[in-house]
Computed example of a mutant assay.
Amino acid sequence: MPAATDQTFQLVPGAPRHVAIIMDGNGRWATQRGRPRLFGHHAGAKRVREIVEACPDFGVEYLTIFAFSTENWKRTQVEVAGLMSLFRRYITKETKALKAKGVRVRFIGDRVRLDAKLVKLMNVLEAETAENTRTHLTIALNYGGRDEVARATQRLAQDVAAGLLSPEDVDEETLPRYLDTHVLPDPDLVIRTSGEARISNFLLWQSAYAEYEFIDTLWPDFTKAEFGNLCAAFGNRDRRFGAVSS
């Protein structure tokens, strides 16, 4: 493998180019150990670093992680405040390392409800890593698939009203250009940890033809080895995209 600062990317035949992960189970992991839920979230944040660093080993160029959903505001005020503090701390602590390891970071989701200090840190991290190409890390923060499509449709409608786009030109190729993920390829593989078998409003449009893996492992216990096994298994899948296998 190239050195950590090398911007080149080594393609692994059959590997998923883009993996998206619903990082579930932090709270249950902490509860099983008699600790508060935020203890689990801190453990989960540490796991993110290991998985991000493992991506080049398995041929994964793009990694998208679900950090905080539009529905997570329904949690207790203590947990939400703790998560926002964790996000600020994570960005502050990891910016230098992410930049050095060739990781480009993007955020998707609605930033309007986030506090100004957090948004400023997000903007700085995106700017500091904008030239990196080895691994593309996308963090979904205050993100919901339905919310994303609604916001995209609003922007599209504004362009139609302004005469920049004809209604007849609106099709399934047009709308993705207005999504938060418009610069990213669609995910090839979506992983959900913790034993839950639902997609929870995550990348609804983009994952139309993604392969899914629902695993029992709680996110803080999700290892590089398990990640590698799932990426390897992906290579054995017959992806027909609606066609008949040859």
Rank of each mutant, 00 (worst) to 15 (best):
M1S: 14
A3I: 12
F9K: 07
Q10C: 13
L11A: 13
L11I: 15
V12S: 09
P13Q: 08
G14A: 09
G14K: 06
A15D: 00
P16A: 06
P16S: 02
H18W: 01
I21M: 05
I22D: 08
I22W: 05
M23T: 11
M23P: 00
M23C: 12
D24G: 01
G25T: 01
G25Y: 01
N26Y: 02
N26A: 06
G27A: 02
W29M: 05
W29V: 11
Q32E: 14
R33K: 13
G34I: 04
R35M: 13
F39P: 03
F39S: 14
G40S: 05
G40I: 04
H41F: 00
A43W: 01
A43L: 05
A45L: 03
K46S: 09
R49L: 14
E50N: 15
I51Y: 04
I51A: 02
A54D: 06
A54E: 06
A54L: 06
A54W: 01
C55L: 02
D57N: 10
G59V: 08
V60Q: 01
V60R: 01
E61M: 10
T64Y: 00
T64C: 07
F66A: 11
F68L: 10
F68G: 00
N72K: 05
W73Y: 03
T76G: 05
Q77M: 15
V80C: 06
A81P: 09
G82P: 06
M84Q: 07
S85F: 07
R89C: 15
Y90V: 13
I91D: 01
I91E: 02
T92Y: 14
T92E: 15
K93L: 15
E94C: 06
A100K: 05
K101H: 12
G102M: 02
V103D: 07
R106F: 02
R106I: 02
I108M: 09
D110Y: 00
D115S: 04
A116T: 14
M122S: 04
V124E: 15
V124K: 14
E126C: 12
E126I: 10
E126K: 10
A127F: 05
A127T: 11
T135L: 04
L137W: 07
T138W: 03
I139N: 04
I139M: 15
A140P: 03
N142V: 03
G144C: 00
R146K: 14
R146M: 04
E148D: 13
V149Q: 04
A150C: 13
R151C: 03
R151E: 08
R151L: 04
A152P: 10
T153M: 12
Q154D: 13
D159V: 01
D159M: 02
L164Q: 12
E168F: 08
E168Y: 10
D169F: 09
D171W: 04
E173D: 14
R177C: 15
L179F: 13
L179G: 00
T181K: 07
L184F: 01
D188A: 10
V190L: 12
R192A: 01
T193W: 01
G195Y: 05
E196W: 07
R198C: 08
S200T: 02
N201R: 08
F202Y: 15
F202M: 09
S207N: 05
A208S: 14
Y209F: 09
Y212S: 06
F214P: 03
I215G: 00
T217M: 06
L218A: 11
P220D: 09
A225V: 12
C231D: 07
A232N: 07
A232Q: 09
A233Y: 04
A233M: 10
G235S: 11
N236M: 08
N236Y: 11
V244Y: 08
V244W: 10
S245R: 15
